[in-house]
Simulated scan of single mutants.
Amino acid sequence: MSFSIATWNINSVRLRLPLVEQFLKRYQPDILCLQETKCPDEFFPAEAFEALGYSHIAISGQKGYHGVATLSRRPIDIVEKRDFCKMGDRRHLSTRFSAGGRTVLLHNFYVPAGGDEPDPAINPKFRHKLDFIAEMRDVRAGHDGESGSILVGDLNIAPLETDVWSHKQLLKVVSHTPVETEGLESMRTGGGWTDLMRAHIPPEERLYTWWSYRARDWEASDRGRRLDHVWTSPNVAADMREVEVVRAARGWERPSDHVPVIARFGYE
């Protein structure tokens, strides 16, 4: 038996629907978690995904901003749409499904970007981001013999030195400042989560999932950051077989600035 899950900040699901369809046809993950869908629930293009076999759909969207969606080829149950920091933003969606003889709780997150100035005293967007990460400490990697947990999404923080193109130059840039990276890692380890991408790809290797639109040639400059993550409870991590960053998607026509990440699991 096998199972796969993908996460992708799509930066408008309606604008980039052809890219999502292309991705699903080619890679066929069992579940796809999208972030920054920028789409009210009533206008979500569900029929397009149902036509591809993704008939189980959970969405939490809003007009023009934020939004998350979980699309599945197997049954899922909606567990929670949590309003972190009581801002009214659609940034979290949890669902439950069965795989490998266990019930899995899946969290789909879109963490605030935090603006440009890494000072919470003068930048309310950065304050919001730090508060959001602090509140995420309540989200733990619950597991036992019959259950497990997965957390995926655009967490908008690149925690390791090798998760950015230049650790030294980005230490004072939002997404890689010490207060962010230390906060995220403290939340992850305190919650019992395993960083699945770094369990598969050694921390010594550079690893990116995002490249800015501002780069004239994103591939040549390769100034990326790992902003997208896949975490699991230890028992789910033990079944991991492969993690793939679909770097080629950054070069597709009218792409998102993020690329999909796919985690594949195998069960005896």
Rank of each mutant, 00 (worst) to 15 (best):
E242F: 07
R241I: 06
F84Y: 13
W211D: 01
P159A: 04
V261M: 03
Q35C: 11
E204N: 09
G266W: 05
T95A: 14
R225V: 02
R90Y: 03
F44K: 08
D257V: 08
E135D: 10
Y213E: 09
E42Q: 14
Y213I: 10
S12P: 00
M197Y: 02
P118S: 09
A134Y: 04
S233K: 02
P118F: 11
D217M: 06
M197A: 06
A249E: 02
T103L: 11
A134P: 00
L105E: 08
G266M: 08
F44P: 00
C39H: 04
G88P: 11
R223V: 05
T194I: 15
V246W: 04
D154T: 05
E253V: 14
R247S: 12
R226K: 14
L17Q: 13
R216K: 15
I57S: 05
A249S: 10
R91D: 08
I5Y: 01
F3T: 00
A99C: 06
I76Y: 10
T70C: 15
E50K: 11
Y267I: 07
Y213T: 09
G115K: 07
G67C: 06
V104Y: 02
I57A: 06
E205S: 08
M240T: 12
R14A: 06
P112W: 07
I157Y: 00
C33E: 00
L17N: 04
D144R: 14
P29T: 05
E146L: 14
L184K: 03
Y267K: 09
I76F: 12
T177G: 04
E180W: 08
G88C: 12
I10W: 02
W8P: 00
R241T: 10
R16Q: 10
R226W: 02
L196P: 01
A199S: 14
Y208C: 03
L160M: 14
L227T: 01
E47T: 12
T181R: 15
F132W: 15
A48M: 04
H176M: 04
G64Q: 12
G142V: 13
A99L: 04
I78A: 10
A48P: 01
V111S: 02
L160P: 01
F44G: 05
T181G: 01
M240H: 06
H107K: 01
P124Q: 13
D163Y: 02
K86T: 08
H229F: 14
P260T: 08
R247N: 07
S55T: 13
V179C: 08
R198V: 00
T194A: 02
K25C: 10
L52K: 01
E253M: 12
P159E: 03
L130H: 07
F265A: 01
A6G: 07
K86S: 12
G114D: 03
R90Q: 13
V179P: 02
R137L: 04
L71W: 03
S233N: 10
S94A: 15
R247W: 06
E80H: 12
K129L: 14
E161N: 11
D217W: 12
I122S: 11
T70M: 10
Y54V: 06
T103H: 08
A238Q: 10
V236E: 05
G101R: 11
T177S: 04
V246Q: 08
I157E: 00
Q35M: 14
P260F: 04
L155T: 05
K125G: 07
G183Q: 00
G114C: 05
S186C: 09
R247D: 05
W165F: 15
G191Y: 05
F43W: 13
D163T: 02
N11C: 13
R264M: 03
D222V: 01
E219A: 13
A6W: 01
V173Y: 05
G67F: 02
A220D: 09
